[in-house]
Structure formats: structure tokens, C-alpha cells
Amino acid sequence: MKKVILATVFASMLAMPAMAETIRMGTEGAYPPYNFINDKNEVDGFEREVGDEICARANLDCVWVVNDWDSIIPNLVSGNYDTIIAGMSITAERDEVIDFTQEYFPPSPSMYVGLSGGSVDVNGGVIAAQTGTIQAGHVASSGATLVEFATPDETVAAVRNGEADAVLADGDYLMPIVSESGGELAVVGQVGIGGGIGMGIRESDTALKAKMDTAIASMKSDGTLNTMIKKWFGDDALTF
């Protein structure tokens, strides 16, 4: 009799709608408009909106976690969170350590920004970039002197106070800063490096990667993703 009851309980439990799996989304929270922490102390930005939509479509319960850029990959592989969604370009080097979903943001050019009025030698001067970014890698190989900073904001501050001649970062990050600088800063160069931006996932986590890929594909096909890109990066932004 007991066994029968147990079996019924078990069967009814299985029949219940599956509880949404909790996925922890790791982001940097310092790279507007991709991701930033707004004044309500919540993660905000393009990737917040994209991430929430992906989770809704994949039927996942998502929690946002803020992590330093420096340790964002090590903390993913040691299991502190399950995805990286932090404006991370897909590169071969990173792909050796982690896996990427298909891109949710197309490749966009990186820009050199310096003080307006000055002349900058982007291949021989002092260029600031954030540690561990594709831009830092590019500067190191371009012949310029690289100065690295832990946060994106510090790279721009280095140009403002004269420590660096220019900063190299994603154009989409730098453009709002340039346009609001009141003429202090100007774009001094442009370079196309890196692939598109994808979500970083542990190599062993193939099931999660498949779910995310499906959700991103569906957002591409019905145009939702393009609408979000235009909302955050302006009408001229590259879309899918």
C-alpha cells in the first residue's frame, strides 16, 4: 500500500509543470550601453534587456551577478555563475577556455578617442585599453605603448588627464562619452577588430548553450533583437 501511495505521489510530482531552472548571468556592470548598474542599483542596459528576453524564451529563471572583468572567465569555469553576458567579443583565444553562443551583437568597429585638437599617432603613441580585452591585444601588437586599466572608465579618464594619448575601446561605448564631452574628446581613428559578441558558457554546459542558441535565433528571426539594438545603439547601428 505504501509503495502505491509513494508511486502516486511521485507520478503527480512528475506531472507538475517543471520549475524553471535558475541560471546565474555574470556581467561586468561598467560598460554602458552594453551593461551598467543604474541608479536603482540594478543591472541595466542592452544586455540586461537581451538577457531577460533570452531567459524568458528559454524558460529559464535568470539572476544577475556582477563580477570584475579581470576574473569574469575564471569565475565562470569554477561555477560561480553560468553565463557571461558582458559585451565579450568571440575570439579564438577565449574559445579555447569557454564556449560561445551564436552572436547576439554583430561585429562593430573599435575606435581611438583622444583629446580634440591634438594629433595622435595611434601606432606609436601611448594608448589606453582595458585589461584582457581584444583592444588591449590589438594595441600591444600595433607598435603603440599600451597602458592597461581594470575598468573601461579609467581608460577614458587616462586620456582626459593626459596619461594616454588616446583610448581604444568599442565605438559603441565611446561614442556617447565623446558626444557628451562638450568637444573635449574626439574620435581620432577606427579599426575593425574582433568578431561579434556572444554569450560565454562553460564548455561542458552543452545543454544550456543549445537553449540559449535557440532563443537567440528566434529573437533574430522575428526582429526583436534588431529592435533592441536600435533602441540602445541608435538607428545607425549594425543589425542582423
Binding site: 554602458p32 548598474i37 541608479d39 570584475d68 557628451e180
Partner: peptide, 29 residues
């Protein structure tokens, strides 16, 4: 902050950094 705890120095750096109008309260560095 190395251990993932948002301490006073992390917040000072985050709050003090220059903010564009993506934020509710834009301000320079």
C-alpha cells in the same frame, strides 16, 4: 572585491566614475 564582495573602494570607484546620460544622474569624473 577580489572575493566578489562589493566593498567601499569598489563603490567609490563605481560611483565616482564619469557617467553619461545613460544614467539618471550624469556627472563627470
Amino acid at each position: 572585491f577580489l572575493l566578489g564582495i562589493q566593498d567601499i573602494v569598489y563603490w567609490a570607484r563605481e560611483l565616482g566614475s564619469a557617467k553619461t546620460s545613460a544614467y539618471t544622474y550624469p556627472h563627470p569624473d
